[in-house]
Deep mutational scan, measured.
Amino acid sequence: RPMNAFMVWARIHRPALAKANPAANNAEISVQLGLEWNKLSEEQKKPYYDEAQKIKE
């Protein structure tokens, strides 16, 4: 299954978030990633939607 825009973004940002929160488990990191993603504007998300579309094609 191809990655969606959030997954493209999260793949880039997960390592830094995990390093900054070494005690957090994957579920907690995923929740935090979701919160951070939701704070982004549509303009900030656009490159990730574009990349996800390329992956689908």
Rank of each mutant, 00 (worst) to 15 (best):
V31A: 13
E28I: 07
M3S: 10
K46T: 04
A24P: 03
E51G: 04
A16F: 12
A5V: 02
L17F: 14
A27M: 10
A52Q: 02
A16I: 15
V8C: 08
Y49T: 03
N25L: 06
K19G: 04
P15Q: 09
K54H: 09
G34E: 15
L35R: 09
K46I: 05
A23C: 13
A20T: 07
L35Q: 09
R14Q: 06
K39M: 09
R14W: 14
Q32P: 00
N26V: 12
R14S: 05
N4R: 05
K54A: 09
N26F: 15
D50C: 07
N21R: 07
P47V: 07
K56C: 13
A10V: 09
A10P: 01
A18D: 02
L35E: 06
N21M: 14
W37T: 00
K46R: 11
K45L: 02
L35C: 05
A27G: 05
Q53N: 11
N26Y: 15
M3I: 14
I29Y: 02
V8K: 04
W9L: 00
L33H: 00
E42W: 15
N38T: 07
M7Q: 13
A5N: 00
E36C: 12
I12K: 09
E28Q: 10
P15L: 10
K56T: 13
N38P: 01
A52H: 03
H13A: 11
L35H: 07
R11C: 15
A18P: 01
I55Q: 10
L35P: 00
L35T: 07
E43F: 07
M7V: 08
G34W: 15
K46L: 07
R11T: 14
K19T: 06
Q53S: 10
K39C: 06
Y48E: 00
V8A: 06
S30W: 15
Y48V: 00
I29D: 01
D50I: 14
K46N: 03
A16Y: 11
E28D: 06
F6K: 01
E43T: 08
N38A: 13
P15D: 10
A20K: 10
A16K: 14
P22S: 04
L17Y: 12
M3H: 09
S30T: 13
E28T: 08
Y49F: 10
W37Q: 00
E28P: 02
K45I: 02
R1V: 12
A24K: 11
N4M: 11
Q44G: 05
R1L: 12
A27L: 11
H13T: 09
N26H: 13
K45F: 01
D50Y: 09
Q44A: 11
I12T: 08
P47C: 06
K19S: 08
A16S: 08
A5C: 02
D50A: 11
E51K: 11
D50V: 12
Y49M: 07
P47H: 05
E57T: 13
A5H: 01
V8M: 08
K56P: 05
W37G: 00
Y48R: 00
W9T: 01
Q44Y: 05
L35S: 05
E28A: 08
